[in-house]
């Protein structure tokens, strides 16, 4: 069991800074998901925690020990990689047992732990197989098994589900979250997939260009994103952002560069439903219709912007027709036009 702490953490490659002095405290037992686009520094941060990358500045603490100069093996962490990093020349049993290679346990004790981990992950019938005879999801479970048997102070996951298909990914999300619930170990998890972040995290850390934009529980980030980037990154489809002006408490779209940006999630911008006292009304010509089953996404042009709104499932909206979409009070996020920081809701 351990806490992780990053203090003014900096990473530079040559003269190129990639992490700009980030601060973060991860309490014991928390499931933290680092999320952001490619190149935002989330993997680098995780690798620095693991000890695979040197720290250029600031410090990393595990528990109350500064680990900047501590060898990976001394940190008592376990890591699961995107390509699983399970050894093709070993059986599942040997792969899982490899996590205990340096442990001083007796052979019987090691075997018992391997069996227990395999049972927990549903790998018992596969123990004597080689990785080449396993599916992607099973391979990833072997990698998790190897990490688990060591009973580390913390788990690090580096995009562990990226190589799996969508269905398997959804299943593994639930399995990993369930594993966390049962083991209660601190987890730092890196992904570029905001759905993984939303569904699994106790707390999401949104990163961009080597900075932490926001670190908060998933629904807090969804409800109150700190800036335009976070607002658009979390939630699908992405939040609509339009230049706006506020006139005596009434919002309307603005032309060109505006002091205000209004953000409305597609689910809050409805077509064909009665909205009493709307905060914002947008009208335009439909460019595309995407029926999803329970609802239909309607793409239209308004105020020179591409907007996505939701309509009832059987709304019969034709491409080319004009629609009016409205958002209720308290559903419009306002951002500063220059800094793109959140200003609250209207």
């Amino acid at each position: 069991m351990a806490t992780f702490e990053l203090r003014k953490l900096v990473k530079t490659y040559g003269r190129t800074p990639v992490i700009h002095g980030i601060d973060l405290f991860i309490p014991d037992g928390e499931f933290v998901v680092f999320v952001g686009p490619s190149g935002c520094g989330k993997s680098t941060t995780l690798r620095m925690i693991a000890g695979l990358e040197e720290v250029s500045g600031g410090e990393i603490r595990i528990g109350d020990r500064v680990v900047n100069e501590v060898d990976p093996k001394e940190r008592n962490l376990a890591m699961v990689f995107q390509n699983y990093a399970i050894y093709p020349h070993m059986t599942v049993r040997q792969n899982i047992a490899f996590g205990l290679y340096t442990s001083r346990l007796s052979g019987a004790e090691k075997a018992r732990k391997v069996e227990a981990a395999a049972a927990l992950l549903g790998l018992t019938p596969l123990l004597d197989r080689r990785p080449s005879a396993l599916s992607g999801g099973q391979r990833q479970r072997v990698a998790i098994g190897r990490a688990m048997v060591r009973e580390p102070a913390g788990f690090l996951f580096d995009e562990p589900l990226s190589n799996l298909d969508a269905q398997l990914r959804a299943q593994m999300r639930i399995e990993i979250k369930d594993l966390h619930r049962r083991l209660g170990t601190t987890i730092a998890y890196v992904t570029h997939d905001q759905v993984e972040a939303m569904t699994m995290a106790d707390r999401i850390v949104v990163m961009k260009d080597g900075h932490i934009l926001q670190a908060a529980p998933p629904m807090e980030i969804y409800d109150n994103p700190a800036d335009v980037f976070t607002a658009r990154f979390i939630g699908t489809p992405s939040m609509n952002i339009i230049p706006a002006q506020s006139d005596a408490g009434v919002l309307s779209p603005a032309e060109g560069k505006a002091a205000l940006l209004a953000g409305i999630r597609p689910h809050d911008l409805t077509i064909g439903a009665e909205v009493v006292d709307p905060a914002l009304v947008l009208a335009g010509k439909v460019t595309a219709v995407e029926p999803l089953g329970p609802e239909t996404l309607v793409h239209f042009e308004a105020a020179g912007q591409h907007i996505i709104a939701t309509a009832p499932a059987h709304g019969q909206i034709a491409v080319g027709s004009r629609v009016t979409a409205s958002a209720g009070r308290g559903r419009v996020h306002l951002f500063d036009g220059a800094t793109e920081r959140a200003l609250g809701r209207q």
Partner: peptide, 26 residues
């Protein structure tokens, strides 16, 4: 793959054991 070595290093496996258990078999 480099991750094989990284995984072994995190698991605390020494250089010689990495050579014997991972590099040479692969």
């Amino acid at each position: 793959p480099q991750t094989y070595y990284e995984a072994a290093r995190i698991d605390g496996v020494g250089e010689f054991a990495i050579l014997r258990k991972i590099t040479l078999p692969l």
